[in-house]
């Protein structure tokens, strides 16, 4: 299984690189035109040389791949630091939000899904379904923007800060205040992160449990005199978690990679915002680095999924 995914690695990067090669070629000229300042031809040449645009695409590409294996992603145009450092310094922030959202989603959705399955057709089931579908219909970033306007001191209430990861004076705060400040900055982004994922996971859990409850082995368990609780929470749930666990790694990969939109809305200086800024500022080495890392994360996520699959389902074994 893993082997099927792995060949994707180098190839897909190649595609991206070819793409990016084209992008780089056009890069500086469009910057100059968009900034509206005309740059003398000679200066232009110099800039090109500085950034390495004077060499043909394939040559740049080969150099770039060579450096990639040395974990050298080049230097950021904007930050004038190695790309690797620029990216890794943003990682903790994205991981922080990613992990919180991830845990929250799984901790809420799985019990909720199971309970909905058990109470299928009840008023609670119908109402909670409506609520999660309402959540599903609101794009997280849009809700985030709205929450900021409502509660972030925009037009109405000033309950939460207007984004950011921490307050500027965070380092001077006492440790209790630090925690408070952190939570203060966490609430709104996390709501935006989890809102649309709730529906998918809850309904997936519910359907999975319900499907398992009508399986033959459940009838066997009942025929043995096992209590309904144990049948549901032990027999059915263990089987129902297989498809859910399988999606876990993938989900994790996506969350850790940060969200473009939400980080942009809340001005959280993580991987997503970095990506956005780099594209806007045409900081191509960083963009390229992020693409590589995104792909790697996705790959790692898939591998984690496969491993979890093998753990939860005894029928799957690595050969």
């Amino acid at each position: 299984m893993i082997l099927q995914v792995v060949p994707g690695g180098p190839l897909e990067m190649e595609i991206m690189r070819i793409r990016m090669g084209g992008a780089m070629g056009e890069g500086p000229s469009s910057t100059s035109s968009s900034s509206g300042i005309s740059i003398p031809e000679s200066a232009m040449e110099e800039i090109k040389k500085f950034y390495g645009f004077d060499k043909p695409i394939y040559e740049r590409y080969i150099v770039w791949v060579g450096n990639l294996f040395k974990l050298n992603l080049g230097k950021s145009y904007v930050y004038a630091e190695p790309v690797w450092d620029v990216i890794t310094s943003r990682f903790p922030v994205s991981i922080y939000f990613g992990m919180i959202s991830f845990l929250l989603t799984y901790l809420v959705c799985i019990p909720l899904g199971v309970y909905k399955a058990v109470k299928n057709g009840s008023t609670f089931d119908i109402i909670s379904s409506a609520i999660v579908f309402i959540g599903y219909s609101i794009p997280g970033f849009a809700l985030g923007a709205f929450l900021l306007v409502m509660f972030g001191g925009g037009s109405f209430l000033d309950w939460f800060p207007l984004g950011g990861f921490r307050s500027n004076d965070y380092d001077t705060l006492s440790s209790v205040d630090k925690i408070k400040d952190q939570i203060h900055h966490t609430v709104l982004p996390v709501i935006s992160y989890v809102i649309s994922g709730f529906a998918t996971l809850t309904i997936l859990t519910k359907n999975s449990v319900i499907e398992n409850l009508s399986q033959d082995y459940i009838r066997t368990a009942f025929s043995k005199g096992i209590s309904e609780k144990r049948v549901i929470f032990y027999h059915a749930l263990r089987n129902s978690l297989i498809p859910i666990a399988t999606g876990l790694g993938h989900f994790l990969g996506i969350l850790v990679a940060g969200s473009f939109l939400i980080e942009t809305v809340f001005n959280i200086d993580g991987i997503g915002l970095l990506g956005y800024k780099s594209i806007v500022q045409r900081d191509y080495p960083v963009v390229m680095g992020l693409l590589v890392i995104n792909t790697l994360l996705l790959l790692v996520g898939n591998i984690i999924s496969d491993i979890i699959y093998a753990i939860v389902d005894p029928r799957i074994r690595f050969k």
Partner: peptide, 11 residues
């Protein structure tokens, strides 16, 4: 039961 293949809990 009739179906020994599905009547036991697979996990």
């Amino acid at each position: 039961f009739q179906e020994p293949m599905t009547s036991l809990n697979p996990v």
